[in-house]
């Protein structure tokens, strides 16, 4: 599959183009034709590739339990069951205040060495599973589990490393407000959430969020940040000059529609 590149552009621009195309290809490979969107908090629209969590995908969430809860809250509020594996310190009260329904929350605090089996068994029946892996996961195991997730339509959030995850979220900055030197109390926090798509390719986004905000919700704080990378265009948008090959456009339309 070769995209018709304009021949008169200078070399760096061409390299740029190749990178962008690679990102688009891997972005499309990640988005399966029939993968459905999972209801996600609107604050993450600019962060997550595709705007929402999707069924059958694996998303890495690094460095913040609040971020994990924020991703779990809206699916839980929409009636889905949520399982949390291997996070013995998961704050139940915070989860409840952020909107996770406790009667549809299942905790497996100490799965021990069998955590991967437990996750696989839970993914069969529970549409949102969050896990903190113990040790390294081999790519073979990960892809077996991914196949199972896709088949069942479950979403896996991983608080740690995962080979071949579909997206990767992390905190870059964290700024608490309300607490001063000697007085006040923690009230809200502004964070910068960075996101990368599959295999580090795809869209890289940074977004300033309130996590949590004053009313224990989540919100976008201010304008979208200037992106360090060039990959600012949405991978799903078809640009006219190189959208000539019909099958590609066809796939995309189906994928986005």
């Amino acid at each position: 599959m070769t995209a018709p590149l304009t021949t008169d552009s200078p070399a760096p621009a061409r390299l740029e183009r190749v990178e962008e195309l690679q990102a688009r290809i891997s972005g499309m490979q990640a988005t399966r034709l029939d993968s459905k969107a999972v209801p996600t908090h609107p604050a993450f629209e600019s962060v997550l590739p595709g705007g929402t969590l999707r069924e059958g995908t694996v998303v890495q969430v690094e460095g913040s339990t609040t971020l994990l809860m924020a991703l779990l809250a809206t699916p839980s509020a929409s009636g889905r069951w949520v399982a949390v594996v291997g996070l013995p310190d998961f704050g139940v009260e915070a989860a409840a205040r952020f909107g996770i329904a406790l009667d549809r929350l299942v905790l497996v605090p100490d799965p021990g060495g069998q955590w991967l089996t437990v996750v696989a068994a839970l993914a069969d029946v529970i549409p949102m599973v969050a896990v903190r892996p113990v040790g390294r996961v081999s790519p073979a195991e990960a892809s077996r589990l991914s196949a199972r997730l896709r088949q069942r339509g479950s979403t896996l959030l991983v608080a740690g490393e995962w080979p071949g995850s579909d997206a990767r979220l992390g905190l870059e900055e964290s700024q608490w407000q309300g607490l001063e030197r000697g007085h006040g109390h923690l009230r809200e926090r502004e964070v910068v959430v960075s996101a990368a798509g599959r295999g580090g390719f795809g869209r890289r986004a940074r977004s300033r969020l309130r996590l949590p905000d004053r009313s224990l919700g989540f919100a976008i704080a201010g304008e979208a940040l200037p992106l360090p990378e060039r990959a600012r265009t949405r991978p799903t948008r078809v640009e006219p000059e190189w959208a000539e090959p019909v099958p590609l456009g066809d796939i995309e339309r189906r994928a986005t529609g």
Binding site: D89, F90, G91, E93, A94, H185, L216
Partner: peptide
């Protein structure tokens, strides 16, 4: 504690 609850509670 007031309304904001910590996300990680150490056992």
């Amino acid at each position: 504690l007031p309304a904001l609850a910590p996300a990680s509670v150490f056992r």
